[in-house]
């Protein structure tokens, strides 16, 4: 077995102006240059392990990454776990179930516990918006926001941008339509900020009830009419719609939602010929997206999952190997 230490990007060679923030809490904290550094690093990681029998780099040997998950999210957790393990870090999964959290330990006490154990990075998923920001006050290690309440999910946006770049080349100038429950979506917030920073033209499409008051200040356009927004778009990103939103009177019925905002074959055909279809998963097939579209030509939904591991490797690598502010 040969796992030669390939320095993907030597942190010492990263100029200070390209230093990442100490914690990855919001894509709003990234500049076009730092975001591009992450995407470039991911691309080099992908090249470095392509075709290798052992897809593992020794870069983070001896470092400890804690997955602190207060919400069930199997796909995000295993993606981060795989990313850390492929960099040879030690990974600890700390979930709210089966730990002191369910007995009522405060976030601060949990943070101090992880701190005492010497966590180099804490990957935090939490149902409360801003919980990773609070956590960052109490630990010395790097905090990575893996989704907080209805706020942000930065690595999802980075993997989406990575996927877009692979298929569309440059992101700047591309027209990207994001459809669905923007109000409650951390994916939408992170994507709007990141894609705007990278120069894309983003249009949000949703019923007015599922757009936040104040969305007018975001760096994007807003449309209530999917058929109006889709023609010629380079990509469409469908957001998961929680069925339990029905109780909040956000829309009358699933059927009406699907009719007005679901992506079916006819709407799919409105995209530019090279247009692609994204979804952060898990999908409600038949609700926001038709199975034939999800599985059809131009759908990159499965590829997004694989890219997620690569992008998270890049984030962990850059933060933990010193290319961030101290």
């Amino acid at each position: 077995m040969t796992t030669s230490a390939i320095p993907v990007i030597d942190p010492a060679l990263v100029p200070a102006t390209l230093a990442l923030p100490r914690h990855l809490l919001s894509t709003g904290d990234l500049t076009a240059d730092t975001a591009t550094l992450i995407l470039d690093t991911a691309a080099r990681i992908e090249q470095a392990i392509a075709g290798r029998e052992v897809r593992k780099l020794p870069t983070l040997r001896g470092r400890t990454v804690v997955n602190l998950f207060y919400e069930d999210s199997t796909r995000t957790r295993i993606s981060f776990e795989l990313a850390a393990k492929r960099l040879s870090a030690d990974v600890i999964n700390f979930s709210a179930k089966g730990s002191s959290v369910s007995k009522g330990e405060s976030l601060k006490d949990t943070a101090l516990t992880l701190q005492a154990m010497g966590a180099d990075a804490v990957v935090c998923r939490h149902q409360s918006s801003g919980a990773p920001h609070r956590l960052a006050n109490w630990v010395d290690g790097h905090v990575i926001n893996a989704g907080d309440g209805t706020h942000e999910h930065p690595t999802q946006a980075l993997l989406d941008a990575y996927t877009l770049r692979r298929h569309l080349g440059e992101i700047a100038g591309r027209r990207i339509v994001i459809v669905g429950d923007v109000l409650h979506s951390r994916v939408a917030r992170s994507n709007v900020l990141l894609l705007a920073t990278l120069g894309a033209e983003v249009t949000l499409v949703a019923p007015p009830t599922l757009l936040p008051i104040g969305v007018g200040s975001w760096p994007c356009a807003v449309d209530y009419d999917l058929d109006h927004a889709l023609p010629g778009a380079d990509a469409v990103m469908m957001l998961r719609v929680q069925r339990e939103r029905m109780g909040g009177a956000f829309f009358p019925t699933e059927r009406e939602y699907s009719r007005r905002y679901g992506l079916d074959g006819r709407r799919r055909a409105l995209l530019a010929p090279h247009g692609i279809v994204l979804h952060p998963g898990p999908m409600n097939r038949g609700m926001e997206i038709e199975p034939s579209v999800a599985d059809g030509q131009g759908s990159v939904i499965v590829e997004q999952v694989g890219n997620g591991v690569t992008v998270r490797m890049a984030v962990l690598y850059l933060l933990l190997s010193g290319a961030s502010e101290v």
Partner: peptide
């Protein structure tokens, strides 16, 4: 308002 939209609260 704008802040609640940004902060996701």
């Amino acid at each position: 308002g704008e802040m609640s939209a940004k902060l996701g609260m």
